[in-house]
Write a protein that binds this DNA or RNA. Structure first.
Lengths: 327, 327
DNA sequence: CTGAAAGCGCTAACAC
DNA sequence: GTGTTAGCGCTTTCAG
């Protein structure tokens, strides 16, 4: 920068003005400086700038992992908008370490200006963050303890899924859940119950099985599903796929003997056999929304925060259908 | 830091020594400083440190996108080892902007100390980077123009896949490729040809169809496959799945009328119908290896660089089998 | 073993 | 419109 200033015959401050597109520079000076910059191949030092400015122009994004398509897609959506706003994106996963340590590294040491947390866990210690730190939480239900929230209405989604099965004529509807302490599991379970209750069906606890989101757990859950069930709502597509496989291995036809609906509309959901009926969520858009919220929070607008509610949409394919005669 | 020094009754320099675990501090002083740090809740300012040190302790990772499981998994593997070494990970995708702009933002402005580039493109302009910048390229074939390279031997993988079909007795083996300018496509095509040549089979250009990695493109490719083909190697699993769907829609049985082998062993590959025979690559380990290489490069060891070759492994499931009688 | 001084490259506040 | 002066919070170098 000093060299540029010398070459252009101005002070380093004028160079600073030029690279920051600050007003109050003659066109002539500006051109001279730009010529010098070009000639010297000068590039502003991002770290020095961050240091002087007191902000990093870098935002963090933490997710449980990346291999889950849902999270990866969220993050990609967020990246696309943050990048457009001139921010860099620091990524951290917290599957192998406590969330607090992420906060410690990224926030307490002031490496980032704001944070997007993708979390299916209701008990995430957001309190580990300074109260006024720009934070957007991507969660699975409404909550009061966080300023900026983007959430997928899981309760509504599960209700829709269950209603779809009810509308087809099913009355014995099983449920395969994720780990029961997770936020969205609780919500989806609530939606399932609400739909049953609204249909005047008393809920049989034996019809609910707990999995761990994996296809294998869906497969294993099948063995525990009472034979009178004619349909099942799986809380994600992987478990739905496992369940279908197990049902077929057990000699059942899908959907004739057992209808199965999933959740997520993962890639290739339509390429399974039978093509999966599922609840679609636009994960890319969710990520984008989170990023927009964060940008707004950083700009100081939306000071009070607001919760953005997103809903999932039923996609009917061929893994659900009316119940067949008694099997 | 000044406050900590004052409270502990030492200079800020001693505080610096303590937080950096530098030698030459009395146990007593150290304890006093640590007490002060704890009491004040002091955290070193990462940016100030980076600025003073002249390095950022942040590494970059660029990939075409995140939603492709392969890349996401690479990146997650890389993150796990970088994190362990105290580095942060800056992520950037380049599906919507030139690679050079990534270099500009991250490297030229010195936001990162090193870079992992996940690239299926042979023509990636690594020359945009300063020659001595710590770089690890995750590619699809050996190449000379880069110091640190981790590559999956795609030629070998495609050869294995094709040999598997040959061993089953197929002689008319079609191929569905990705976009033909991509690195790994060229390599996989070469492996396919090599296997055919070794079996004394002359290659029929009509048997090779170009797709775009999507399941849809695999589906569409089917229409162009000559009816005498009894088997096909798809260059990824998604296209394999699309191809299988199309074959069945066309009244063929898989694998009896058409054997299909994929590439990647993507999640749930075994849950498709039929379970997919494919070439497995350990994408998480590949990412880890890239990170280790980068760490080594930063440490100055491995100065001359070396190429790490990884191979994929045949996973036989049920989408391949011996050819049936003439269909 | 500890302290003092200098400086990393930039922006912000004010003076000219 | 442009230059001058500080100073961001730390590490490095060198004295004591």
């Amino acid at each position: 920068m000093r060299d540029v200033a010398a070459l252009a015959g101005v002070s380093h401050q004028t160079v600073s003005r030029v690279i920051n597109h600050a007003p109050g520079v003659t066109a002539a000076t500006r051109e001279a400086v730009e010529a010098a910059i070009h000639q010297l191949g000068y590039r502003p030092h991002a770290i020095a700038r961050s240091f002087a400015e007191g902000r990093t122009r870098t935002l963090g994004c933490v997710a449980p992992n990346l291999t889950d398509f849902t999270y990866a897609s969220n993050m990609e959506g967020a990246e696309s908008v943050l990048r457009r706003h001139g921010y860099d994106l620091l990524f951290a996963s917290y599957h192998d370490r406590p969330f607090e340590s992420v906060v410690e590294t990224l926030v307490a040491r002031r490496r980032i200006d704001g944070l997007i947390v993708i979390s299916p866990y209701v008990d995430l210690p957001v309190s580990a963050l300074p109260a006024d730190f720009p934070l957007v939480l991507m969660g699975g239900c409404p909550r009061e303890d966080v300023n900026h929230l983007v959430y997928l209405d899981n309760r509504d989604g599960a209700r829709q899924a269950t209603e779809h099965l009810l509308a087809l004529g099913h009355t014995n509807i099983a449920q395969v859940t994720g780990p029961q302490q997770e936020d969205c599991v609780i919500e989806r379970d609530a939606g399932y119950r609400e739909a049953l209750a609204a249909a005047g069906i008393s809920r049989d606890p034996l019809l609910t099985l707990e999995g761990d989101w994996s296809a294998t757990s869906g497969y294993e859950a099948f063995a525990a599903i009472p034979p009178e069930a004619t349909a099942a709502v799986a809380q994600n597509d992987r478990m739905a796929v496992g369940l279908i496989r197990a049902a077929r291995d057990g000699g059942l036809r899908v959907p004739d003997d057992l209808s199965v609906i999933g959740f997520d509309d993962m890639p290739l959901a339509s390429y399974f056999d039978p093509p999966l009926t599922t609840m679609r969520q636009d994960t890319f858009a969710i990520g984008q929304t989170c990023a927009e919220q964060l940008i707004a929070a950083l700009a100081g607008s939306a000071q009070d925060g607001r919760a953005v509610r997103l809903v999932s949409e039923l996609v009917v394919r061929s893994s659900t259908g009316p119940p067949a005669q008694r099997r």
